[in-house]
């Protein structure tokens, strides 16, 4: 099947990509990095965190770059005062939602949420913080989940389903009560489907899932999904 190659503009730069490429990828190919949290190369797009919203000329609507395909002659803006304001707002809402204290977090200095806050210049949180106090599940031999640090990006769920292929992880409840669970809400140590493959910990952008006793810089290998997909394709 032949794919149409189309032209469009991202931040004023002319870009040529196959039709249907996600805006995020088209931008990255020409060196323009759009902030993301829930997206991870190698996994399906989710469109949940809303960090990657961009403006498309001709409509007042904002579009998630990770899951919106490019169209011919689109003119896309990835940086503007409004977008910056909105990205800061999203980060503040995430920081206020549960318990995020960098100084006592395993992922300190290796956390994408922290890095995003720094990068965007989030210097305060305009909302009351919600110090959630969910029990930490350390029943697994070495995998630990602290849901107080979870930002519900579902990368762990997607990597478990799409790459490892077991779908141990999923969500329960909805809205602010949503939680990542194992099997039918078992303690991790009791999960009969978990293969202990560690991919969830590697792709978790924050300190919610980590590996007991392993140096954090070793654990947080976010390109694992992309790496596996590439190797599989090569084979």
């Amino acid at each position: 099947m032949s794919v149409n190659i189309i032209k469009l503009k991202i931040d004023g730069v002319e870009v040529t990509v196959p039709e249907g490429t996600a805006i995020l990828k088209a931008a990255k190919d020409s060196g323009i990095i759009i902030p993301t949290l829930c997206n991870l190369e190698g996994l399906t797009a989710y469109g949940g965190c809303r960090l990657c919203l961009v403006e498309v000329s001709g409509t007042p609507k904002l579009f998630p770059a990770c899951s919106t395909p490019v169209g011919p002659n689109m003119e896309i803006t990835t940086q503007s005062d409004k977008l910056k304001e909105y990205r800061k707002m999203a980060v503040q809402m995430l920081l206020a939602e549960r318990t995020h204290i960098c100084s006592v977090c395993v992922a300190d200095d290796h956390c994408e949420l922290q890095a995003m806050a720094n990068q965007l210049g989030v210097d305060h949180v305009m909302f009351e913080r919600n110090w959630s106090q969910d029990e930490i599940d350390s029943t697994h031999d070495f995998l630990v989940i602290d849901r107080n640090r979870c930002i519900l990006c579902t990368r762990c769920i997607r990597v478990c389903d799409q790459i490892e292929g077991v779908h141990t992880l999923d969500l329960k409840l909805r809205g602010k009560d949503s939680q990542v669970i194992m099997d039918l809400d078992e303690h991790w140590g009791n999960s009969c489907s978990c293969t202990s493959c560690r991919k969830c910990a590697k792709v978790c952008p924050v300190g919610a899932i980590y590996i007991e006793g392993e140096p954090i810089e070793h654990t947080k290998k976010r390109d694992i999904a992309e790496f596996i997909v590439e190797r599989r394709n090569r084979r």
């Binding site: 469109g47 949940g48 809303r50 809402m93 939602e97 969500l171 009560d177």
Partner: peptide, 10 residues
């Protein structure tokens, strides 16, 4: 709220 996106959930 279903809990998927940050603005609506958080």
């Amino acid at each position: 709220s279903c809990g998927k996106c940050t603005p609506c959930r958080a």
